[in-house]
Design a protein around this nucleic acid. Structure first.
Length: 965
RNA sequence: GCAGGGGUGGCCCAGCUUGGUCAAAGGCGCCAGGUUGAGGUCCUGGUCUCGUAGGAGUUCGUGAGUUCAAAUCUCACCCCCUGCACCA
């Protein structure tokens, strides 16, 4: 289909107002939203998947005669638009390439350096993409989250949440760039240039007192091992600094000191060298032992506090470091205390038991298992550490008297708590790998004492959200269980931040901006109001808290300055579209957006207005399974095409169908241009078959009855698939099963005529949700209007015929048998036998088989004697009792393994005879003949007739010399 | 570790909720034939193994179990992926 036709249909839909959702009292409605996209760059083919589900669903519901509202907006909040605008400002080559391709001129670039303008520009470009794909969103809903009216809405939302007691303040540790402000540390690295995979590591500090009162502050991940400390480690030549906190003075590395100030306040004092302390002794807390301060290269001053407590029995690195000490120093340390054990009865995995074999302390065994000889074997040492830490954490029990038999897991918490109670221990957080912000600065973790939180941990709120989540239907169904699990774990979340973010200023402290997740949990409700703003019936200033209280909550008199009737209309509109039928998003939304969305609805709305469904889709991934992100468009040799390129190559329909057909919704789809090619080819096929379906030949009644009956079933199943959200199934039926039905119809001798035309008429409408352009093209002139507004076909449009279906099923079964027999023949390259002679089973065999089946359903086997007895009352069986035993023996096992038979008896003789032409054509026989078994004695040269079973005629394929022409 | 998902024929991917119609849909690849003034498109058939007649054997990560019957149910184990928090 050429681009002009595509545009033609898109304009026709627009002109007909197909996408406009109208409130019609008493009429069913369908309201589904997709999680609006963030403004992080231009869209590419990886972004359209949710639309490829949402649009067909909306189109389907429209064709069911429902009113449907499919809104759209963009989520401009947060940092994405800021970073993108920055890239424009930096004239980043990849970004510029995309912009040029999108037709943006050089002189327009300056405008896009402003984040808000950039966000609006991107939003407009997304809308253009949707139009070019025939995705019918209601454009009067279109919004960006930085619009004045949206901000008014978010301010109200937070006011309402605050009034409900959902906001609290507390202490929080935030990732922040000291120069650029807060950043998000996540794998997408939106805000970062590296370190997105970093995890937050929590150290506990342990104070070791020197004789002079100063404290060497060690940092550890395993506070419980304080009972096994033999010494402290400092790095040779390391510069240390005194951190003053309260009245205490702690000695730590420079990096550690800065971290402590950031997270716990205080200030840094004078500097000293490690060598000043080496050789002195310190007191171990909790045990009171005195241990020496030693030097080792294992210490990394940038990690933790730069002071390391040495636990050689359990830390492989300490054990390795110990080995490198001079003999006499080692001797002075004395025996290495072992403080925990792996119980002998623990069942260990092979990789775990590897670590515990051998002799020596646990750490020495781990070193031996991984063949670590010295500190220099860094990789092996890291693995030994990782694995023995895990083993001891999961399986270990303490052996020190104070904590005898306490699990390591438990001991860790207890020891950390005790240390902290003494007031000289702190938690220190840092990243597991260095994190660098987009502008090249090191990102740190900072303590924020007065952070605002959404109190998702509130037990009552959580309980009602949990209850609501149980009532939400979810696709895939497995997500239902996961969702309540996620809600269960959901905890207080910071909902504001300070920095150069886009968003709505926090009403209770305008220094802060509302965090982007928190401002996108209730917008589905706002879309309804937005339509009044975008059509000029409401102004942003009129959207006051009293207005929203009335519209969303039905509370209070509304906003006095706004026309009462108008407010009532908005309220009615809200109550018409709500509750939301479906919220669709990618799997990245599972853990944050969906739960927060649910929480907010639960807090603000009564039960009858809570969302009905969520729909989670997988990603479009690159060849190695990674998610495609907007910033890599065109950066890898054009591997991922832009939307424009894709449309040019395949057109909108093939692309749309690719998303639904390539995998089931929850699965990731690997972007595969060849598959899109294949699908485009399939659509050409569909088009051809529909076009060829017109004709005026007379049909064959029994074949037409079968065609209709099958079509009836297919229509039913397509609709069931849409209703269940199984869009891949719907696509498969529509684009695979229906054409193959028609192919078979033609192969069986059907010709284009009124029946095929009728089937095509339904089919074209079934094509409309997923491939609407093609459907319009094929439906032109057929319905006297757009296909998009035609009613969905109903199964009742086609009569059922069990008889016709049974006949065709019988014939297919016969074909299968013929094929099986013919296969070895043709494989040897021999010619096909000239004649096929069929012998149809007599009625008594069916009777006997039904007895066998009855018996097997009771779990029994039908005995010969029993059958004989029973035949007394069945003359037709009685007449053949001579053959009964033999037949019974042959059929007994077979019947049990077979599916229940179609209960419609088929006139096998008649069916085979009338299919003669087909069978001859299909297999290349010269002729066929059909006999009843009992009449065939004289035509049975190979004695095969008694093989006949009901539904499976016996046959003999006969070769005879071609005597006549 | 915790949570979720997954391991299917050369490859991709259905099926598993509701055990039998499953040697297992569909696509790709491959083979043969047809169409076409040769290998492109399209159409038809084939594509686990054996078998001179519709049969038999062995398959759905591994092992065990339930059952007349298991890709489908149960248990154990191995391996892979994702998430674990402020990131839409």
């Amino acid at each position: 289909m050429d681009a002009a036709r595509v545009r033609h249909w898109q304009e026709a839909w627009a002109k007909a107002g197909v996408s406009t959702g109208r409130r019609i009292a008493g009429r069913n409605k369908y309201y589904a939203v997709i999680a609006y996209p963030g403004t992080s760059g231009l869209l590419h083919v990886g972004h359209l998947r949710q639309f490829a589900y949402a649009d067909p669903l909306h189109r389907y519901h429209r064709m069911l005669g429902e009113q449907s509202l499919f809104p759209f907006g963009v989520h401009a909040s947060g940092l994405p638009a800021v970073t993108w605008a920055q890239r424009v400002k930096d004239r980043d080559p990849a970004t510029l390439r995309q912009l040029v391709r999108a037709g943006v001129r050089e002189r327009e670039l300056a405008r896009l350096e402003d984040p808000e303008t950039a966000a609006r520009f991107l939003g407009d470009s997304y809308r253009a993409v949707l139009r070019s794909l025939g995705i019918l969103v209601d454009e009067t809903t279109y919004l960006t989250t930085v619009d004045a009216d949206y901000r008014a809405f978010v301010r109200w939302q937070f006011g309402a949440l605050h009034a409900a007691g959902a906001l609290i303040q507390g202490t929080y540790y935030a990732s922040v760039c000291p120069v650029c402000g807060p950043v998000a540390v996540d794998p997408s690295e939106t805000d970062l240039s590296s370190g997105g995979t970093a995890e937050v590591v929590r150290f506990t500090t342990v104070p070791f007192r020197l004789e002079d009162g100063r404290i060497l502050l060690a940092a550890t991940l395993r506070p419980e091992t304080v009972y096994g400390v033999t010494n402290l480690w400092l790095r040779p030549g390391e510069g240390l600094v005194v951190w003053h906190h309260g009245s205490a003075a702690f000695v730590v590395s420079r990096a550690g000191g800065e971290r402590l100030v950031e997270q716990h306040g205080g200030h840094l004092g004078h500097e000293l060298l490690a060598s000043e302390l080496v050789g002195r002794t310190v007191v171990v807390p909790l045990t009171g032992r005195s241990v020496p301060v030693l030097e080792s290269d294992l210490v990394d001053p940038d990690l933790g506090t730069g002071v390391v407590m040495s636990v050689p029995a359990h830390a492989p690195a300490d054990a390795a470091a110990l080995r490198e000490l001079p003999e006499e120093t080692r001797a002075r340390l004395g025996a290495v205390p072992v403080i925990l054990e792996i119980p002998a009865d623990a069942s260990l995995t092979p990789s775990e038991s590897e670590l515990v074999v051998g002799i020596g302390t646990p750490a020495e065994r781990a070193l031996a298992a991984l063949r670590v000889r010295s500190l220099a074997d860094a990789d092996a040492l890291a693995e030994a550490t990782e694995r023995s830490y895990r083993l001891e954490f999961v399986r270990g029990r303490m052996t020190v008297p104070e904590l005898a038999a306490v699990s390591v897991r438990e001991a860790r918490d207890r020891v950390a708590r005790r240390l902290r109670e003494e007031g000289t221990s702190f938690e220190v957080q840092e990243f597991s790998v260095p994190v660098v912000c987009r502008n090249g600065h090191a990102v740190i973790i900072r303590r924020v004492p007065d952070q605002w939180f959404l109190h998702y941990g509130d037990p009552a709120w959580k309980a009602s959200t949990l209850a609501a989540s149980a009532r939400v239907s979810s696709w895939p169904p497995e997500f239902a269980r996961e969702l309540s699990e996620i809600v269960e774990w959901f905890n207080d979340r910071p909902c504001t931040r300070r920095g150069r973010w886009l968003g709505t200023p926090f009403p209770y402290d305008p220094e802060w901006v509302i965090e982007p997740i928190a401002d996108s949990t209730f917008y589905m409700a706002y879309y309804v109001v937005r339509r009044f703003v975008s059509t000029g019936r409401l102004r942003a200033e009129e959207l006051t808290p009293p207005f929203f209280d009335y519209v969303f909550l039905g509370r209070g008199p509304g906003e006095p300055t706004v026309d009462r009737a108008l407010q009532e209309e908005v309220r009615a509109e809200f109550l018409y579209w709500y509750p939301l039928d479906l919220n669709m998003g990618g799997k990245e939304h599972k853990r944050v957006h969906f739960p927060a969305f649910l929480y907010t609805h639960v807090r603000l709305l009564p039960p009858e207005l809570l969302p009905r469904g969520v729909y989670v889709t997988g990603w479009i991934t690159g060849p190695s399974g990674e998610k495609l992100s907007k910033k890599e468009v065109g950066t890898k040799g054009g591997r991922i095409p832009s939307i424009d390129e894709a449309l040019e190559r395949w057109g909108p329909d093939a692309l749309r169908l690719f998303y639904v057909l390539a995998a089931s919704p929850a699965q990731d789809i690997e972007w595969d241009p060849d598959l899109v090619d294949t699908i485009a080819g399939r659509l050409d096929d569909v088009e051809r078959v529909v076009r060829e379906s017109a004709g005026d030949s007379a049909g064959r009644p029994e074949l037409d009855a079968w065609l209709f009956s099958r079509m009836r079933d297919l229509v039913r199943r397509v609709r069931a698939a849409y209703d269940a959200g199984e869009l891949r199934e719907a696509a498969e039926l529509t684009y695979v099963a229906i054409p193959s039905l028609l192919r078979r119809y033609y192969a069986r001798g059907g010709v284009p005529g009124a029946p095929t035309h009728r089937v095509a008429g339904a089919w074209v409408r079934l094509l409309s949700p997923m491939t609407p352009h093609l459907a319009e093209e094929l439906g032109e002139g057929r319905f006297g209007g757009l296909v998009a507004v035609q009613p969905m076909p109903s199964p009742d449009d086609f009569p059922a015929s069990e008889v016709a279906e049974a006949r065709e099923a019988f014939l297919e079964r016969v074909e299968e048998d013929l094929r099986a027999v013919l296969r070895p023949v043709t494989e040897r390259g021999e010619p096909v036998p000239e004649e096929a002679i069929f012998y149809v089973a007599p009625g008594w065999k069916a009777t006997v088989e039904s007895w066998v089946r009855e018996a097997s359903e009771r779990g029994e086997t039908l005995g010969v004697r029993e059958a004989m007895d029973r035949s007394a009352s069945h003359p037709e069986v009685m007449a053949r009792r001579g053959e009964l035993a033999k037949y019974l023996a042959r059929v007994q096992a077979l019947v049990r393994a077979e599916p229940p038979p179609a209960h419609r008896p088929v006139d096998e003789v008649e069916t085979l005879r009338s299919a003669e032409g087909y069978l001859v054509r299909r297999f290349g026989f010269r002729s066929i003949s059909v006999y009843r078994e009992e009449e065939a004695a004289t035509f049975d040269p190979m004695g095969r007739r008694d093989r006949a079973r009901p539904g499976r005629p016996a046959f003999y394929l006969m070769r005879r010399p071609a005597t006549d022409g």
